[in-house]
Design a protein around this nucleic acid. Structure first.
Length: 466
RNA sequence: GGUGCGGUAGCCAAGUGGUUAGGCACUGGAUUGCAAAUCCAUGAACACCGGUUCGAGUCCGGUCCGCACCUCCA
């Protein structure tokens, strides 16, 4: 079996074949660092994390670039409002972004280029576009890309150029464009930009949005690379424009595959800052949910499906994760008297193949999780009948670690049992031996206050983190 | 108007024409001092109408409903 992914460009599933045969070079559109990222943003970053993890699981190398957009209307406006330099303003949110990624268990990309560090590359790219006749300067000094010059414009979004309705959102202040749909490569300086500007052959100004991704992706990954990702809303205009700029400049194919994730919606509506119905990750964690629970939530629906976010499902996920943790704890206990991993027990023999088969099919996470949960069930059943051998248990733990390279929530973080908890558990055992149930229950309540539970088993009491 | 994505049991969510998806929740039982966990059992679904087929959630046609994008939102 081979890893097949859905390519937005062809609107079909294609086998992933990296251009160089071994390393997948991927560019993932990153955050605009003007505020704390919301849970919808992380849906995209989580999809990209799953993708890079499965690419590696499939045996390929990976080089991932994720950009940080640290100059645009919003960042400039907010930094001026706060009276701090742009870089100072954005740094807060860059730091927050990385903290959030860590909380969600998202693997770091290989490169996180900031737009403001690549302005010379962007200027060079625009110069090339001028030389090749795709760019022109308007009366206000801004530089635009002439989409009429690029024959392939609209391929990704499958635009019907004739049928396009002049959108209500076409900015009323953009004069002097040849075609209303032409987009800015370089924006001429305006007083509202404060001290945010760069010199260029076209005068002071700042880069347009799309050019940043073209310049940084090609600089770090080469003129042609493998996968470009983002949310579906990026298909048009952002990715369409990137293709136009990049391929016009180089004459080579830009990204081989385009992958886009669906929206995260809240109560059936798209979550966005403008609608005001968004939650930042921070808010959710402050409510007492863990990064792992949020990770499970964001990962457990297929990436191209819209995901309806609800706290109710976060609660359900907690129960599902608890089931996984209980299983893992049972494995660890069984593994205690093993030294080397042996053969997998029959009930786990097919798990990896089933998991892989599902994931190979455009990352069918539901099928992959079904393989995991079926194994949990079959394993619990078998362990209820006969104790699991140490070697077998170690083999299953090995499998679990392997699958967790992809999922990132399968193996719980081990938590040492505090001395106080151990003592209480021992005291409770004594009370139980004396059939002092009242004392026993009192101790159990006390343990619960400490965040611990205890399960009584034939092998003795076992403490469990609640 | 153009371009897409959907409508599957109480909720979430897979599904390549033909023997149980899976998760959460619910109910009964086993187990337990009581629990917890686990196991066993029971259910329950394919928006609607036609059609193709021995057989359709799955293919075809039509209808209804929801969501998104159409110039800087992941």
């Amino acid at each position: 079996m081979a890893f097949r992914i859905y390519n937005t460009m062809s609107r079909s599933k294609e086998e992933l074949r990296p251009i160089d045969g071994k390393t997948v070079r991927m560019y993932t559109c990153g955050p605009t660092v003007y505020n704390y990222a919301h849970i919808g943003n992380f849906r995209a970053y989580m999809f990209e994390d799953l993708l890079r993890r499965y690419v590696r699981f499939s045996g390929f190398g990976v080089v991932q670039v994720q950009n940080l957009t640290d100059v645009d209307d919003k960042t400039i406006k907010a930094s001026i409002a706060q009276g701090v330099p742009l870089k100072t303003y954005t740094q807060t949110y860059v730091d927050a972004f990385f903290e959030d990624l860590a909380k969600l268990g998202i693997e770091p990309a290989e490169h996180y280029p900031a737009a403001t560090d690549y302005v010379p590359e962007m200027i060079a790219l625009i110069e090339t576009l001028f030389e090749k006749g795709y760019a022109y300067q308007s009366e206000d000094g801004s530089v635009y890309y002439s989409i009429d010059k690029f024959a392939g414009y609209g391929m990704l979004a499958r635009l019907d150029r004739e049928g396009m309705q002049a959108g209500a959102r076409v900015a009323q202040d953009e004069y002097g464009k040849d075609n209303a749909a032409d987009f800015a490569l370089w924006k001429a300086y305006v007083p509202e930009d404060g001290d945010v500007w760069w010199d260029s052959p076209w005068g002071r100004g700042r880069p347009g949005w799309h050019i940043e991704c073209s310049a940084m992706s090609m600089k770090l990954l080469g003129e042609s690379f493998d996968i470009h990702t983002g949310g579906v809303d990026n298909i048009f205009p952002h990715h369409e424009d990137e293709i136009a700029q990049s391929e016009a400049a180089t004459g080579k194919p830009y990204s081989k595959y385009w992958m886009h994730c669906g929206y995260l919606v809240v109560d059936g509506r798209k979550m966005s800052k403008s609608l005001g119905n968004f939650h930042t990750l921070r808010e959710i964690l402050d409510m007492g949910y863990t990064g792992r629970e949020v990770r499970y939530e964001l990962l457990s629906s297929h990436y191209r499906q819209s995901l309806n976010f609800a706290f109710k499902s976060l609660d359900a996920n907690r129960a599902a994760l608890k089931r996984l943790d209980e299983f893992h704890a049972a494995l660890r206990e069984a593994a205690a008297d093993g030294t080397v991993a042996g053969e997998l027990p029959a009930w786990a023999a097919e798990t990896r193949a089933r998991f892989t088969e599902a994931m190979d099919d455009d990352m069918n996470i539901s099928g992959a999780l079904a393989a995991v949960f079926d194994t949990v069930h079959a394993g619990n059943k078998a362990m209820a009948d006969h104790p699991l051998g140490g070697g077998e248990a170690l083999a299953v733990l090995g499998l679990w670690n392997d699958l967790d390279r992809v999922l990132g929530f399968l193996v719980p973080r081990e938590e040492a049992v505090p001395a106080e908890v151990r003592e209480l558990v021992a005291a409770r055992s004594l009370a139980r031996a004396n059939k002092d149930w009242a004392e026993s229950d009192r101790i159990r309540d006390r343990l619960a206050e400490l965040g611990w539970g205890v399960k009584d088993t034939p092998e003795g009491p076992k403490p469990r983190k609640l």
